[in-house]
Amino acid sequence: MAVIAHKFAQGFGASAAHQPERAPSRAAGRGDGEFASVAMERYAQGDESAFASVYDAVAPRVHAYLIRQTRDRAVADDLLQQTLLQIHRKRGTYVAGLPVLPWAFAIARRLYIDECRRRKTDALWSARDVGEDDRRVSALPDDEFAAREAARLVEVELARMPGNQRVAFELLKVEGLSHQEAAQALGTTVNAVKLRAFRAYSAIRAVLGCPLDPSASS
């Protein structure tokens, strides 16, 4: 969470000279999506070696998403493993040409929700992480301190905002999914995703004291 918060704090105005940072993974994401679809098609047809390609196309982004959600690498590893195994088990149902990433993100999100329900300790994880961040901050130079402070504000705001807004925001701005893909992964409409992301933007900008950019939702 601190990583994402730091990244967005830099983009949103830890320094006024910085323009909002576009998700660097977005361009790569398109390529990953097509590569994943092609690999998944081969795998659905029975090419066993294609699973490694599916893994390479899907796993890094889903893993990053799970790490941000769980803030626990070991749990994220486990959930990633289960996500990929779900895809493996359902490979026969794959329809050629359909995007794989929204499917993978939806499975990962469902497994994460299952995990949260099982453990009921996500609040404790957050508390632990905030404590560790606070301990580290004192040793940093001024600029970095300012960025970290902004990151902390973003982090708190992300943690405070409704889950559906946070997830929509992360899928669009961190994972680089299109509105259509994010809508599929969340099981909602494109307009609903835009609205959630816009609200998340507005909340974060408000907490950082930045003027609202009317184009933020597009």
């Binding site: 969470m1 990583v3 070991a74 195994l85």
Partner: peptide, 21 residues
């Protein structure tokens, strides 16, 4: 990592998932 408990390394995780599949 700053805020993430450690797990196994990426290559080991990849090998384990592919092996399991």
């Amino acid at each position: 990592t700053a805020d993430v408990r450690s797990g196994v390394d990426e290559a080991q995780l990849r090998a384990q998932v592919i092996d399991r599949s």
